[in-house]
């Protein structure tokens, strides 16, 4: 019943939301904080600790936007959303940003009334199996029972993969990741499939993490990124450039530790533009000119966020390294 109510509330959200689509920036400034939609607990990306403090790569993105808008990275409130609720929550205005390891796809971009403001993690769907199964490749999984969660692209990807390989399977789709892990752990399924980052994050919840292995196949492209409502370009730009600022900061070697010194000493034009000493890039966004300085000093650059949150899961930078380091992370320049 609870879920049904949530869905109804979401529908009511579309009906009751103020019809004049006021600028999100003004709304956010008026209420004094950013409402950020995150996952219900995915270590490394968005996860709350015992004290209710949220950490993770996706959380840091919302904090960065708060730093840019308010000069205070803590002016964020988090709304944990299931995969199913998330798009309705952002579409109805319940949250201002959806930063919840959400895959950028064409359907979502064109049909849901949403826009993806960039990619903060390049992921791919993988599969985990118990080592005792004696399987080395995903093409040996004909007839397997597969656990995953509903309301995501994973259901489609796994279906496509098995169809393409002419194999049959049975899908057991749960609403929340915790139940997927519990059911897989109990032996209900032979395979647990989700994004590889998710597999790494959830592995720790298994009773014997070492008795499982992640298969080498990556069966999909999963560019994960922040989502905003369509039709508010200013807000879209703020979110997109907050992410770009973090990536550019890494590229220029500016960290939360050296940003203060840099702000006053570095005369490289690119750096001066980033930290707000040159030009009025912040004002063009509708913010103050030290917007990016606030992001870097309070949240850090992309590498700092990655190393604090994702590296502990055992996930190397890989494709998520900067383009100059052999990865595909490439932010447009601030100029």
């Amino acid at each position: 019943m609870k879920k049904l109510t949530a869905a109804m509330v979401a529908v009511a959200g579309v009906a009751f939301a103020t019809s004049a689509s006021a600028a999100t920036l003004d709304d956010v400034k008026a209420k004094g904080h950013i409402q950020c939609g995150v996952s219900q607990g995915l270590p490394g990306f968005s996860n709350a600790d015992d004290a209710g403090k949220w950490t993770g790569l996706d959380v840091d993105l919302c904090r960065a936007v708060a730093a840019a808008v308010f000069g205070d990275a803590n002016a964020v409130k988090f709304t944990p959303l299931s995969a199913k609720q998330r798009f309705t929550a952002i579409a109805s205005g319940e949250v201002d940003i959806l930063s919840r390891n959400t895959t950028w796809t064409m359907t979502r971009d064109t049909q849901l009334g949403l826009n993806f403001a960039g990619v903060n993690y390049y992921d791919g769907q993988g599969m985990m199996v118990p080592t005792s199964l004696g399987v080395t490749s995903a093409t040996e999984l004909d007839g397997a029972n597969i656990c995953t969660n509903t309301g995501t692209t994973t259901e489609l990807n796994i279906t496509d993969f098995f169809r393409a390989n002419g194999m049959s399977f049975n899908l057991v789709a749960f609403e929340k990741a915790d139940e997927v892990v519990a059911a897989y752990d109990a032996g209900r399924c032979d395979v647990y499939t989700t994004d590889r980052s998710g597999l790494a994050a959830q592995r720790g919840k298994l009773t014997a993490p070492d008795a499982h292995m992640v298969l080498s196949e990556i069966i999909s492209k999963e560019p994960l990124g922040p989502v905003v409502r369509q039709g508010d370009d200013q807000w879209f730009n703020i979110v997109r450039w907050s992410l770009n600022a973090m990536i550019n900061a890494e590229e220029m070697g500016i960290t939360s530790e050296n940003v203060n010194a840099t702000k006053y000493n570095d005369v490289t034009p690119g750096v001066a533009r980033l930290v707000g000493k040159e030009g009025n890039f912040g004002e063009e966004l509708g913010l103050s000119n030290d917007w990016a300085y606030n992001i870097i000093s309070q949240v850090g650059n992309y590498a700092e966020s990655y190393e604090a949150n994702v590296t502990p899961l055992g996930l190397a930078r890989g494709v998520n390294a900067l383009w100059s380091d052999g990865g595909i992370l490439y932010a447009a320049p601030i100029r």
Binding site: A7, A10, V11, V14, A83, K84, F87, T88, A91, T107, R108, Q111, L112, G113, T150, G151, T152, E155, L156, A173
Partner: peptide
């Protein structure tokens, strides 16, 4: 699942 694919809330 279907709602998430189609988006017709």
């Amino acid at each position: 699942t279907a709602l998430n694919q189609v988006g017709k809330e």
